[in-house]
Design a binder for these strands. Structure first.
Lengths: 192, 192
DNA sequence: GTCTATAATAGGATAGAC
DNA sequence: GTCTATCCTATTATAGAC
Protein backbone atom coordinates (compact mmCIF):
# COMPACT_ATOMS: atom_id res chain seq x y z
CA UNK A 1 0.00 0.00 0.00
CA UNK A 2 1.77 3.11 -1.15
CA UNK A 3 1.38 6.10 1.13
CA UNK A 4 -0.71 9.03 -0.08
CA UNK A 5 1.39 11.26 -2.25
CA UNK A 6 -0.23 14.50 -1.14
CA UNK A 7 -3.02 15.69 1.10
CA UNK A 8 -6.54 15.90 -0.26
CA UNK A 9 -6.44 19.65 0.19
CA UNK A 10 -3.34 19.95 -1.98
CA UNK A 11 -4.90 17.60 -4.50
CA UNK A 12 -8.09 19.63 -4.76
CA UNK A 13 -6.04 22.83 -4.92
CA UNK A 14 -4.35 21.54 -8.07
CA UNK A 15 -7.71 20.63 -9.58
CA UNK A 16 -8.99 24.11 -8.81
CA UNK A 17 -5.96 25.57 -10.55
CA UNK A 18 -6.65 23.47 -13.65
CA UNK A 19 -10.37 24.23 -13.80
CA UNK A 20 -10.03 27.95 -13.26
CA UNK A 21 -7.39 28.25 -15.98
CA UNK A 22 -9.00 26.10 -18.66
CA UNK A 23 -12.61 25.53 -17.61
CA UNK A 24 -14.41 22.32 -16.77
CA UNK A 25 -14.86 21.11 -20.34
CA UNK A 26 -11.33 22.19 -21.20
CA UNK A 27 -9.77 19.72 -18.78
CA UNK A 28 -9.39 16.02 -19.51
CA UNK A 29 -8.61 13.42 -16.89
CA UNK A 30 -5.24 13.01 -18.56
CA UNK A 31 -4.53 16.67 -17.72
CA UNK A 32 -5.46 16.02 -14.11
CA UNK A 33 -3.28 12.95 -14.16
CA UNK A 34 -0.32 14.93 -15.44
CA UNK A 35 -0.82 17.80 -13.00
CA UNK A 36 -1.05 15.52 -9.98
CA UNK A 37 1.28 12.70 -11.02
CA UNK A 38 -1.54 10.30 -10.20
CA UNK A 39 -2.85 7.57 -12.47
CA UNK A 40 -6.48 7.63 -13.49
CA UNK A 41 -7.35 4.82 -11.10
CA UNK A 42 -5.87 6.76 -8.20
CA UNK A 43 -8.01 9.71 -9.18
CA UNK A 44 -11.10 7.49 -9.15
CA UNK A 45 -10.10 6.29 -5.71
CA UNK A 46 -10.23 9.88 -4.42
CA UNK A 47 -13.20 10.90 -6.55
CA UNK A 48 -15.44 7.86 -7.15
CA UNK A 49 -17.84 9.97 -9.16
CA UNK A 50 -15.11 10.91 -11.62
CA UNK A 51 -14.81 14.35 -13.11
CA UNK A 52 -18.10 15.54 -11.67
CA UNK A 53 -16.88 14.66 -8.19
CA UNK A 54 -13.74 16.65 -8.86
CA UNK A 55 -15.76 19.69 -9.85
CA UNK A 56 -17.87 19.40 -6.72
CA UNK A 57 -14.77 19.10 -4.53
CA UNK A 58 -13.26 22.17 -6.14
CA UNK A 59 -16.41 24.19 -5.59
CA UNK A 60 -16.55 23.03 -2.00
CA UNK A 61 -12.98 24.20 -1.43
CA UNK A 62 -13.72 27.50 -3.15
CA UNK A 63 -16.75 27.89 -0.89
CA UNK A 64 -14.58 27.30 2.16
CA UNK A 65 -12.14 29.94 1.00
CA UNK A 66 -14.98 32.37 0.36
CA UNK A 67 -16.35 31.74 3.82
CA UNK A 68 -12.99 32.10 5.54
CA UNK A 69 -11.25 34.88 3.61
CA UNK A 70 -14.17 36.95 2.36
CA UNK A 71 -17.12 36.47 4.70
CA UNK A 72 -14.61 36.11 7.55
CA UNK A 73 -12.90 39.38 6.70
CA UNK A 74 -16.19 41.23 6.29
CA UNK A 75 -17.64 40.06 9.60
CA UNK A 76 -14.47 40.36 11.67
CA UNK A 77 -14.41 42.33 14.90
CA UNK A 78 -12.77 45.41 13.41
CA UNK A 79 -13.78 48.79 12.04
CA UNK A 80 -15.69 48.51 8.72
CA UNK A 81 -12.93 50.21 6.75
CA UNK A 82 -10.39 47.66 7.97
CA UNK A 83 -12.74 44.82 7.07
CA UNK A 84 -13.06 46.18 3.56
CA UNK A 85 -9.29 46.41 3.22
CA UNK A 86 -8.96 42.81 4.34
CA UNK A 87 -11.43 41.65 1.70
CA UNK A 88 -9.62 43.53 -1.04
CA UNK A 89 -6.29 42.11 0.06
CA UNK A 90 -7.78 38.61 -0.13
CA UNK A 91 -9.17 39.30 -3.61
CA UNK A 92 -5.87 40.61 -4.93
CA UNK A 93 -4.09 37.57 -3.57
CA UNK A 94 -6.57 34.99 -4.82
CA UNK A 95 -6.73 36.44 -8.31
CA UNK A 96 -3.00 37.00 -8.58
CA UNK A 97 -3.45 40.70 -9.20
CA UNK A 98 -5.67 40.01 -12.19
CA UNK A 99 -3.66 37.22 -13.78
CA UNK A 100 -5.70 34.28 -12.54
CA UNK A 101 -9.34 33.60 -13.52
CA UNK A 102 -12.18 33.14 -11.05
CA UNK A 103 -13.26 29.54 -10.54
CA UNK A 104 -16.90 30.66 -10.38
CA UNK A 105 -16.69 32.31 -13.79
CA UNK A 106 -14.89 29.25 -15.15
CA UNK A 107 -17.79 27.05 -14.04
CA UNK A 108 -20.76 29.13 -15.22
CA UNK A 109 -20.37 27.85 -18.75
CA UNK A 110 -20.62 24.50 -20.53
CA UNK A 111 -21.45 21.27 -18.73
CA UNK A 112 -20.39 22.78 -15.41
CA UNK A 113 -23.30 25.18 -15.60
CA UNK A 114 -25.84 22.37 -15.60
CA UNK A 115 -23.95 20.32 -13.04
CA UNK A 116 -23.08 22.94 -10.46
CA UNK A 117 -25.53 25.80 -10.89
CA UNK A 118 -26.93 25.67 -7.35
CA UNK A 119 -23.50 25.85 -5.75
CA UNK A 120 -22.47 28.66 -8.08
CA UNK A 121 -25.56 30.69 -7.35
CA UNK A 122 -25.04 30.13 -3.65
CA UNK A 123 -21.45 31.36 -3.79
CA UNK A 124 -22.37 34.58 -5.57
CA UNK A 125 -25.24 35.24 -3.19
CA UNK A 126 -23.12 34.52 -0.12
CA UNK A 127 -20.48 36.98 -1.26
CA UNK A 128 -22.97 39.74 -2.07
CA UNK A 129 -24.92 39.14 1.12
CA UNK A 130 -21.81 39.37 3.31
CA UNK A 131 -21.00 42.73 1.76
CA UNK A 132 -24.53 44.02 2.18
CA UNK A 133 -24.54 42.96 5.83
CA UNK A 134 -21.28 44.73 6.55
CA UNK A 135 -22.37 47.91 4.79
CA UNK A 136 -25.76 48.16 6.44
CA UNK A 137 -24.19 47.43 9.79
CA UNK A 138 -21.89 50.38 9.10
CA UNK A 139 -24.93 52.58 8.52
CA UNK A 140 -25.32 52.45 4.74
CA UNK A 141 -28.94 52.36 3.56
CA UNK A 142 -30.19 48.96 2.43
CA UNK A 143 -30.80 49.90 -1.21
CA UNK A 144 -27.44 51.63 -1.56
CA UNK A 145 -25.67 48.73 0.13
CA UNK A 146 -27.20 46.23 -2.26
CA UNK A 147 -26.15 48.35 -5.21
CA UNK A 148 -22.57 48.74 -3.98
CA UNK A 149 -22.24 45.06 -3.18
CA UNK A 150 -23.56 43.91 -6.54
CA UNK A 151 -21.33 46.39 -8.32
CA UNK A 152 -18.25 45.10 -6.54
CA UNK A 153 -18.82 41.46 -7.45
CA UNK A 154 -19.71 42.47 -11.00
CA UNK A 155 -16.54 44.58 -11.21
CA UNK A 156 -14.32 41.74 -10.00
CA UNK A 157 -15.79 39.25 -12.47
CA UNK A 158 -15.83 41.68 -15.36
CA UNK A 159 -12.32 42.99 -14.86
CA UNK A 160 -10.95 39.45 -14.70
CA UNK A 161 -12.60 38.68 -18.05
CA UNK A 162 -11.35 41.86 -19.67
CA UNK A 163 -7.89 41.47 -18.12
CA UNK A 164 -7.60 37.99 -19.57
CA UNK A 165 -9.07 39.02 -22.91
CA UNK A 166 -6.66 41.91 -23.33
CA UNK A 167 -3.74 40.23 -21.55
CA UNK A 168 -3.56 43.30 -19.34
CA UNK A 169 -3.94 42.82 -15.58
CA UNK A 170 -3.99 46.59 -15.08
CA UNK A 171 -7.72 46.55 -15.82
CA UNK A 172 -8.20 44.42 -12.72
CA UNK A 173 -5.91 46.51 -10.56
CA UNK A 174 -7.46 49.83 -11.58
CA UNK A 175 -10.99 48.51 -11.22
CA UNK A 176 -10.35 47.20 -7.74
CA UNK A 177 -8.70 50.41 -6.65
CA UNK A 178 -11.72 52.42 -7.77
CA UNK A 179 -14.19 50.04 -6.15
CA UNK A 180 -12.24 50.19 -2.91
CA UNK A 181 -12.31 54.00 -2.94
CA UNK A 182 -16.01 54.05 -3.73
CA UNK A 183 -16.88 51.71 -0.89
CA UNK A 184 -14.67 53.63 1.50
CA UNK A 185 -16.46 56.82 0.52
CA UNK A 186 -19.82 55.19 1.19
CA UNK A 187 -18.63 54.17 4.65
CA UNK A 188 -17.41 57.69 5.36
CA UNK A 189 -20.69 59.20 4.23
CA UNK A 190 -22.64 56.79 6.45
CA UNK A 191 -20.58 57.71 9.51
CA UNK A 192 -22.27 61.10 9.74
CA UNK B 1 -25.62 18.84 -56.22
CA UNK B 2 -27.99 19.75 -53.40
CA UNK B 3 -28.57 23.46 -52.96
CA UNK B 4 -27.18 25.17 -49.85
CA UNK B 5 -29.60 24.72 -47.00
CA UNK B 6 -28.94 28.10 -45.42
CA UNK B 7 -26.74 31.13 -45.96
CA UNK B 8 -23.28 31.18 -44.46
CA UNK B 9 -24.34 34.07 -42.26
CA UNK B 10 -27.21 32.06 -40.80
CA UNK B 11 -24.89 29.09 -40.39
CA UNK B 12 -22.29 31.09 -38.50
CA UNK B 13 -25.05 32.71 -36.42
CA UNK B 14 -26.05 29.28 -35.17
CA UNK B 15 -22.46 28.41 -34.35
CA UNK B 16 -22.16 31.66 -32.41
CA UNK B 17 -25.26 30.75 -30.46
CA UNK B 18 -23.79 27.37 -29.55
CA UNK B 19 -20.37 28.67 -28.54
CA UNK B 20 -21.66 31.55 -26.44
CA UNK B 21 -24.03 29.26 -24.53
CA UNK B 22 -21.70 26.33 -23.88
CA UNK B 23 -18.20 27.54 -24.65
CA UNK B 24 -15.74 26.35 -27.26
CA UNK B 25 -14.66 23.19 -25.44
CA UNK B 26 -18.25 22.45 -24.47
CA UNK B 27 -19.37 22.03 -28.05
CA UNK B 28 -18.78 18.90 -30.11
CA UNK B 29 -19.19 18.68 -33.86
CA UNK B 30 -22.19 16.46 -33.23
CA UNK B 31 -23.83 19.40 -31.44
CA UNK B 32 -23.11 21.61 -34.41
CA UNK B 33 -24.47 18.94 -36.69
CA UNK B 34 -27.70 18.75 -34.71
CA UNK B 35 -28.12 22.52 -34.49
CA UNK B 36 -27.60 23.04 -38.21
CA UNK B 37 -29.08 19.83 -39.60
CA UNK B 38 -25.88 19.39 -41.55
CA UNK B 39 -23.76 16.27 -41.65
CA UNK B 40 -20.18 16.43 -40.47
CA UNK B 41 -18.83 16.31 -43.99
CA UNK B 42 -20.96 19.30 -44.95
CA UNK B 43 -19.51 21.17 -42.00
CA UNK B 44 -16.00 20.38 -43.18
CA UNK B 45 -16.97 21.63 -46.60
CA UNK B 46 -17.83 25.04 -45.11
CA UNK B 47 -15.03 25.02 -42.55
CA UNK B 48 -12.10 23.02 -43.93
CA UNK B 49 -10.09 23.69 -40.78
CA UNK B 50 -12.74 22.05 -38.62
CA UNK B 51 -13.74 23.39 -35.25
CA UNK B 52 -10.99 26.00 -35.18
CA UNK B 53 -12.27 27.42 -38.46
CA UNK B 54 -15.74 27.61 -36.95
CA UNK B 55 -14.42 29.54 -33.96
CA UNK B 56 -12.62 31.96 -36.23
CA UNK B 57 -15.74 32.50 -38.35
CA UNK B 58 -17.81 33.15 -35.24
CA UNK B 59 -15.31 35.69 -33.96
CA UNK B 60 -15.24 37.37 -37.34
CA UNK B 61 -19.03 37.69 -37.33
CA UNK B 62 -18.98 39.00 -33.76
CA UNK B 63 -16.37 41.54 -34.82
CA UNK B 64 -18.61 42.67 -37.67
CA UNK B 65 -21.52 43.09 -35.28
CA UNK B 66 -19.33 45.05 -32.88
CA UNK B 67 -18.21 47.29 -35.69
CA UNK B 68 -21.70 47.89 -37.04
CA UNK B 69 -23.89 48.06 -33.93
CA UNK B 70 -21.46 49.37 -31.31
CA UNK B 71 -18.75 51.35 -33.05
CA UNK B 72 -21.35 52.42 -35.62
CA UNK B 73 -23.74 53.67 -32.97
CA UNK B 74 -20.98 55.48 -31.09
CA UNK B 75 -19.63 57.30 -34.13
CA UNK B 76 -22.96 58.11 -35.78
CA UNK B 77 -23.83 61.64 -36.78
CA UNK B 78 -26.04 62.37 -33.78
CA UNK B 79 -25.80 64.01 -30.38
CA UNK B 80 -23.55 62.05 -27.97
CA UNK B 81 -26.44 61.19 -25.65
CA UNK B 82 -28.37 59.63 -28.54
CA UNK B 83 -25.30 57.65 -29.57
CA UNK B 84 -24.97 56.28 -26.06
CA UNK B 85 -28.63 55.26 -26.03
CA UNK B 86 -28.17 53.45 -29.32
CA UNK B 87 -25.22 51.48 -27.93
CA UNK B 88 -27.16 50.48 -24.83
CA UNK B 89 -30.11 49.40 -26.94
CA UNK B 90 -27.79 47.23 -29.02
CA UNK B 91 -26.27 45.71 -25.87
CA UNK B 92 -29.65 44.89 -24.36
CA UNK B 93 -30.75 43.27 -27.59
CA UNK B 94 -27.58 41.26 -28.17
CA UNK B 95 -27.44 39.94 -24.62
CA UNK B 96 -31.16 39.21 -24.44
CA UNK B 97 -31.58 41.45 -21.41
CA UNK B 98 -28.97 39.50 -19.49
CA UNK B 99 -30.05 36.00 -20.41
CA UNK B 100 -27.47 35.32 -23.12
CA UNK B 101 -23.72 35.10 -22.50
CA UNK B 102 -21.10 37.14 -24.32
CA UNK B 103 -19.22 35.27 -27.04
CA UNK B 104 -16.01 37.06 -26.02
CA UNK B 105 -16.29 35.83 -22.43
CA UNK B 106 -17.12 32.35 -23.70
CA UNK B 107 -13.89 32.30 -25.69
CA UNK B 108 -11.43 33.67 -23.13
CA UNK B 109 -11.15 30.28 -21.47
CA UNK B 110 -9.93 26.82 -22.43
CA UNK B 111 -8.50 26.00 -25.85
CA UNK B 112 -10.20 29.05 -27.35
CA UNK B 113 -7.96 31.30 -25.28
CA UNK B 114 -4.82 29.97 -26.92
CA UNK B 115 -6.38 29.82 -30.38
CA UNK B 116 -8.11 33.18 -30.57
CA UNK B 117 -6.43 35.47 -28.06
CA UNK B 118 -5.38 38.14 -30.59
CA UNK B 119 -8.90 38.51 -31.99
CA UNK B 120 -10.37 38.60 -28.48
CA UNK B 121 -7.97 41.28 -27.32
CA UNK B 122 -8.69 43.27 -30.46
CA UNK B 123 -12.44 43.15 -29.89
CA UNK B 124 -12.18 44.39 -26.31
CA UNK B 125 -9.81 47.16 -27.31
CA UNK B 126 -11.99 48.23 -30.25
CA UNK B 127 -15.04 48.51 -28.01
CA UNK B 128 -13.26 50.48 -25.29
CA UNK B 129 -11.55 52.71 -27.84
CA UNK B 130 -14.82 53.58 -29.60
CA UNK B 131 -16.29 54.65 -26.27
CA UNK B 132 -13.24 56.71 -25.35
CA UNK B 133 -13.34 58.46 -28.73
CA UNK B 134 -16.99 59.34 -28.37
CA UNK B 135 -16.58 60.63 -24.82
CA UNK B 136 -13.53 62.77 -25.52
CA UNK B 137 -15.20 64.14 -28.63
CA UNK B 138 -18.08 65.15 -26.35
CA UNK B 139 -15.68 67.03 -24.12
CA UNK B 140 -14.88 64.47 -21.43
CA UNK B 141 -11.26 64.53 -20.26
CA UNK B 142 -9.08 61.73 -21.61
CA UNK B 143 -8.36 60.07 -18.26
CA UNK B 144 -12.00 60.17 -17.17
CA UNK B 145 -13.15 58.87 -20.55
CA UNK B 146 -10.78 55.91 -20.36
CA UNK B 147 -12.05 55.09 -16.87
CA UNK B 148 -15.72 55.31 -17.86
CA UNK B 149 -15.20 53.23 -20.98
CA UNK B 150 -13.30 50.49 -19.16
CA UNK B 151 -15.89 50.44 -16.41
CA UNK B 152 -18.71 49.97 -18.89
CA UNK B 153 -17.15 47.01 -20.64
CA UNK B 154 -16.20 45.50 -17.29
CA UNK B 155 -19.76 46.02 -16.03
CA UNK B 156 -21.29 44.33 -19.05
CA UNK B 157 -19.01 41.30 -18.79
CA UNK B 158 -19.29 41.03 -15.03
CA UNK B 159 -23.04 41.41 -14.86
CA UNK B 160 -23.51 38.72 -17.52
CA UNK B 161 -21.40 36.33 -15.43
CA UNK B 162 -23.23 37.13 -12.21
CA UNK B 163 -26.62 37.04 -13.95
CA UNK B 164 -25.88 33.58 -15.27
CA UNK B 165 -24.37 32.39 -12.00
CA UNK B 166 -27.37 33.50 -9.98
CA UNK B 167 -29.96 32.84 -12.70
CA UNK B 168 -31.11 36.39 -12.26
CA UNK B 169 -31.00 38.72 -15.29
CA UNK B 170 -31.95 41.68 -13.10
CA UNK B 171 -28.29 42.07 -12.21
CA UNK B 172 -27.59 42.81 -15.86
CA UNK B 173 -30.54 45.16 -16.24
CA UNK B 174 -29.77 47.14 -13.10
CA UNK B 175 -26.08 47.35 -13.90
CA UNK B 176 -26.72 48.65 -17.40
CA UNK B 177 -29.22 51.21 -16.18
CA UNK B 178 -26.69 52.58 -13.70
CA UNK B 179 -23.89 52.65 -16.25
CA UNK B 180 -26.13 54.47 -18.68
CA UNK B 181 -27.02 57.09 -16.08
CA UNK B 182 -23.40 57.52 -15.12
CA UNK B 183 -22.26 58.04 -18.68
CA UNK B 184 -25.11 60.45 -19.33
CA UNK B 185 -24.08 62.43 -16.27
CA UNK B 186 -20.50 62.58 -17.54
CA UNK B 187 -21.74 63.93 -20.86
CA UNK B 188 -23.87 66.54 -19.12
CA UNK B 189 -20.98 67.64 -16.94
CA UNK B 190 -18.73 67.97 -19.99
CA UNK B 191 -21.24 70.16 -21.82
CA UNK B 192 -20.55 73.09 -19.50
C1' DG C 1 -23.19 21.01 -51.23
C1' DT C 2 -24.70 17.13 -48.96
C1' DC C 3 -24.66 12.38 -47.82
C1' DT C 4 -23.03 7.50 -45.79
C1' DA C 5 -19.28 5.06 -44.19
C1' DT C 6 -15.12 4.72 -41.89
C1' DA C 7 -10.78 5.64 -39.80
C1' DA C 8 -7.99 7.21 -35.91
C1' DT C 9 -7.74 9.08 -31.59
C1' DA C 10 -8.95 10.84 -27.17
C1' DG C 11 -12.14 10.76 -23.52
C1' DG C 12 -14.27 8.89 -19.23
C1' DA C 13 -14.51 4.98 -16.57
C1' DT C 14 -13.55 0.09 -14.55
C1' DA C 15 -11.01 -4.44 -13.11
C1' DG C 16 -7.77 -6.46 -10.61
C1' DA C 17 -2.88 -6.88 -9.01
C1' DC C 18 0.21 -5.22 -5.43
C1' DG D 1 -3.48 4.27 -2.28
C1' DT D 2 -1.39 3.48 -6.48
C1' DC D 3 -0.41 0.95 -10.61
C1' DT D 4 -1.06 -1.45 -15.44
C1' DA D 5 -4.21 -2.98 -18.56
C1' DT D 6 -8.50 -2.69 -20.70
C1' DC D 7 -13.26 -1.23 -22.25
C1' DC D 8 -16.51 1.57 -24.41
C1' DT D 9 -18.09 5.63 -26.20
C1' DA D 10 -17.59 10.10 -28.15
C1' DT D 11 -14.89 12.99 -30.96
C1' DT D 12 -12.38 14.88 -34.72
C1' DA D 13 -11.46 14.14 -39.22
C1' DT D 14 -11.33 11.98 -44.03
C1' DA D 15 -12.84 9.26 -48.34
C1' DG D 16 -15.73 8.83 -51.89
C1' DA D 17 -20.55 8.48 -53.84
C1' DC D 18 -24.28 11.38 -55.71
Amino acid sequence: MPAPIMSREELVARLLELFRERGYDGIALSDVSAATSLGKSSLYHHFPGGKQDMGAAVLEQAGAWLERDIVGALSADRPPARRLDAMFAALRAFYGGGTRPCILAALVTGSAHELFQPALGGAFRTWIQALVAMLTEAGVQAAAARELAQDLVVAVQGSLIVARGTQDPDVFRDTLRRQQARLKAALDAAQR
